[in-house]
Amino acid sequence: MPQSTASPGKLDIAALETLRLVHELGSFTAAAEKLDVNQSAVSYTIAKLRAYFQDPLFVREGGRQVSTERCEHILQQVIEILEKLDDVAQPEEFDPAQSRAKVTIACNYYERILMIPKIVSELRKQAPHLEVEVVNALGDGHLRLLRREADVLVGPFARSESGFHSRRLYTEEYACFMDPRHPMAGRSLDVDSYLALNHVYINYGGGWKSAYVNEIEAAGHSLRPTITVPSPAGLASLLGQSDLVATMPSRLGRTMEGLVLNESPFRGPFDLSVVWTARKNDSAMHRWLREVIVETCRG
């Protein structure tokens, strides 16, 4: 493609951040929305970077801005630079009572119902001017950490790879929930009677397999759901006055009025954790944030 006639000028941090966002989102428009600027500002910045690096950086394919090979190489260095600058910018001490910073927590439905209210209440108590954003983690919340879209990830997401840290909050397990008038309500469920029930299966948008399902399959069985839903939201209404049952984390099911708990032969215990990247490990603010999460969720 013809090279831009824009003067290369000097690189600045904002331009590098724009480059990273366009690469991440695959769109000038999406990057502009994220940065809260006009699309023309993003286009102008990319034009300057194209002139500076003497490379197209992005080509449009299938409705997305696809990075060139040179752009990928540049981005490896750019991300390292941005992360190092983040580290330098973090104050050595943090006063939550005075802070007007923003923190972003990635999690899913379970955590939003059972954990986020307590976490936010304590954050507000200690840091009344702090801005808190809660975003969906879905099944790949660790990518939100790597893409700097979240500061911490809360849920069943402990990571063992290099570059991640985690602390266990508590252990949860699954139970079977149903209407009190269900013929099996209050009765012991063996494997055969459990599998014969009319199950509402929560697939969490297809990006997650629950631990109890892994147990069922490991035992040589399969779950044949009557209904499949993407989230536990609205399950109390769906199960009420019906012969349907749902297997979900026991603490979550206990919050749903009008349902009774039956112990399941497949309990699938799992740990809830708070997860963060090495980049955030030494930040005074993020150490405080993690301590608040641990103390409120373990308490």
Score class of each variant (00 low, 15 high):
residue 62 G to L: 11
residue 142 H to N: 11
residue 89 A to C: 10
residue 81 I to W: 13
residue 267 R to W: 07
residue 285 M to W: 01
residue 251 R to N: 10
residue 96 P to Y: 05
residue 80 E to R: 15
residue 27 S to T: 09
residue 205 G to K: 02
residue 225 P to V: 01
residue 245 V to F: 06
residue 158 A to K: 05
residue 63 G to S: 09
residue 153 L to C: 04
residue 85 L to V: 13
residue 57 L to K: 12
residue 154 V to P: 02
residue 217 E to F: 05
residue 297 C to H: 03
residue 168 R to M: 14
residue 227 I to P: 05
residue 177 F to C: 04
residue 157 F to G: 02
residue 6 A to V: 12
residue 283 S to F: 01
residue 56 P to I: 02
residue 156 P to D: 12
residue 272 L to C: 08
residue 299 G to H: 15
residue 102 K to H: 13
residue 288 W to V: 15
residue 124 R to Q: 14
residue 83 E to T: 15
residue 75 L to N: 07
residue 31 A to M: 06
residue 182 H to C: 13
residue 10 K to V: 12
residue 96 P to H: 01
residue 53 F to W: 14
residue 253 G to H: 00
residue 94 F to M: 07
residue 295 E to D: 15
residue 141 G to L: 03
residue 104 T to Q: 04
residue 6 A to Q: 09
residue 56 P to W: 03
residue 245 V to S: 03
residue 289 L to T: 04
residue 229 V to R: 03
residue 44 Y to P: 06
residue 240 G to R: 11
residue 45 T to C: 08
residue 85 L to I: 15
residue 94 F to W: 05
residue 62 G to T: 06
residue 132 V to C: 01
residue 179 D to A: 05
residue 159 R to T: 02
residue 185 A to D: 10
residue 162 S to R: 13
residue 213 V to H: 04
residue 60 R to Q: 13
residue 67 S to P: 14
residue 84 K to M: 09
residue 78 V to C: 08
residue 246 A to I: 04
residue 83 E to G: 08
residue 47 A to C: 09
residue 188 S to N: 03
residue 150 A to F: 00
residue 76 Q to H: 14
residue 60 R to D: 15
residue 102 K to I: 07
residue 272 L to P: 01
residue 79 I to E: 13
residue 170 Y to W: 06
residue 201 Y to K: 05
residue 44 Y to L: 14
residue 209 K to Y: 07
residue 223 L to C: 00
residue 107 C to M: 06
residue 19 L to A: 09
residue 76 Q to Y: 11
residue 68 T to W: 02
residue 161 E to D: 09
residue 181 R to T: 11
residue 176 C to H: 01
residue 7 S to A: 11
residue 64 R to H: 13
residue 57 L to A: 07
residue 71 C to Y: 01
residue 70 R to N: 15
residue 47 A to L: 10
residue 277 T to L: 06
residue 167 R to G: 02
residue 51 A to N: 13
residue 149 E to M: 13
residue 2 P to K: 14
residue 297 C to R: 00
residue 129 H to E: 14
residue 80 E to C: 10
residue 70 R to P: 05
residue 7 S to F: 12
residue 35 L to W: 11
